[in-house]
């Protein structure tokens, strides 16, 4: 079915729900999502070329199931989705700098911000700070551009360095006599914190013992424990997440006292639909990597910590926000 036809069919379907008991809520939701598709969701990179507009994908996603009750439940789940578009990320890059990185650098400047000569001292400190990504999913280039930082030659991702990096070379480069004195590690999304921990431990354990600042732009609550433990374990390491998504962004496999009613029903829905969702990928877990069950996505990709029913394409399931997986 062509794209426009899908959007039309979707609208007709929602309109046909209007007569149901809470059908008007679906109408209102649709109006909002129609707007969001245009100004928010449609910058989703994995679906830009060839173009697969959000509304067409939504039709495919809802019609994964046949009965209207389940379709309406899936539709209602979108109330709880949090998505960060490209512009919001641009803001996150800048906020990360203003609110997390700069104050940390002030400490290293060892001068008071309103003392004479502060600007020059700060610029020097900045020049000796290396900004790198934790993994290659972080758009470090964009971070540099957004903050108008002078570009640097090397911007390795430290998760890869942890596997392949030469500690001696790195210590010479990043240390008292080296090109840089301190390291800022940024990541776009941190779910369980596993990759962040690998990268951070590697950096903090370098013989040159550089000062390290960990700055996840978006993170789940689970990552906080990891980050704080790292900060405790390494005196020269600081953890400074920018946006921490709270528990209402996640559906966990086991019930918790703090669960809201919609989370309870969403859990049931996830479990009920999982056989269709996973299709041929039998090892796929219903609540995503680390059982995080996140209802989160961003313009560049959907994290694997998010619910597979959002991002997994299979023979029996069309994803709403199909994920580009690392092979």
């Amino acid at each position: 079915m062509e794209i426009e036809a899908k959007s039309r069919r979707l609208a007709e379907m929602i309109q046909s729900w209007a007569g149901e008991e809470d059908g008007n809520a679906d109408l209102a939701r649709y109006t909002l999502i129609e707007y969001l598709a245009k100004y928010h969701f449609d910058d989703y990179e994995p679906c830009l070329a060839p173009p697969q507009p959000f509304m067409a994908r939504l039709w495919d996603w809802l019609t994964n199931v046949q009965d209207s009750a389940t379709r309406r439940s899936l539709f209602a789940l979108l109330d709880h989705l949090i998505y960060f578009n490209r512009n919001q990320f641009h803001t996150l890059y800048r906020t990360a700098f203003s609110s997390r990185i700069r104050p940390w650098l002030f400490d290293h400047t060892r001068q008071l911000v309103d003392a004479p000569g502060f600007e020059a001292a700060f610029d020097q400190v900045l020049a000796r700070t290396w900004f790198c990504p934790v993994t290659d999913s972080m758009r470090i280039n964009a971070f540099y551009h957004a903050n108008r930082l002078s570009n640097v030659r090397y911007r390795p991702d430290w998760y890869s360095l942890a596997k392949f990096g030469d500690e001696q070379k790195l210590s010479a480069y990043l240390g008292p006599g080296g090109e840089y004195e301190r390291l800022v590690l940024l990541e776009d999304f941190v779910g369980t914190g596993r990759q962040m921990r690998t990268a951070a431990e590697f950096a903090a354990n370098l013989p040159s013992a550089p000062a390290v600042l960990l700055v996840p732009l978006l993170s789940l609550g689970d990552a906080a424990a990891v980050g704080e433990a790292l900060a405790l374990a390494f005196p020269r390491l600081s953890y400074a997440p920018v946006v921490v998504l709270d528990s209402t962004s996640q559906i966990r496999p086991t019930a918790a006292a703090s669960d809201l009613p919609w989370q309870v029903s969403a859990r049931e829905l996830v479990e009920e639909l999982h056989p269709r969702v996973k299709g041929e990928r039998v090892s796929l877990m219903p609540f995503g990597y680390g059982d995080c069950g996140a209802l989160a996505s961003m313009y560049s990709n959907t994290p694997n910590n998010s619910l597979p029913l959002l991002h997994h394409d299979s023979l029996t399931w069309n994803a709403l926000l199909p994920r580009t997986a690392r092979v």
Binding site: D79, L81, I82, Y83, L92, V243, T248, S249
Partner: peptide, 8 residues
Amino acid sequence: IPTNPDES
């Protein structure tokens, strides 16, 4: 920028 889906 919201910090949870509800705010969003």
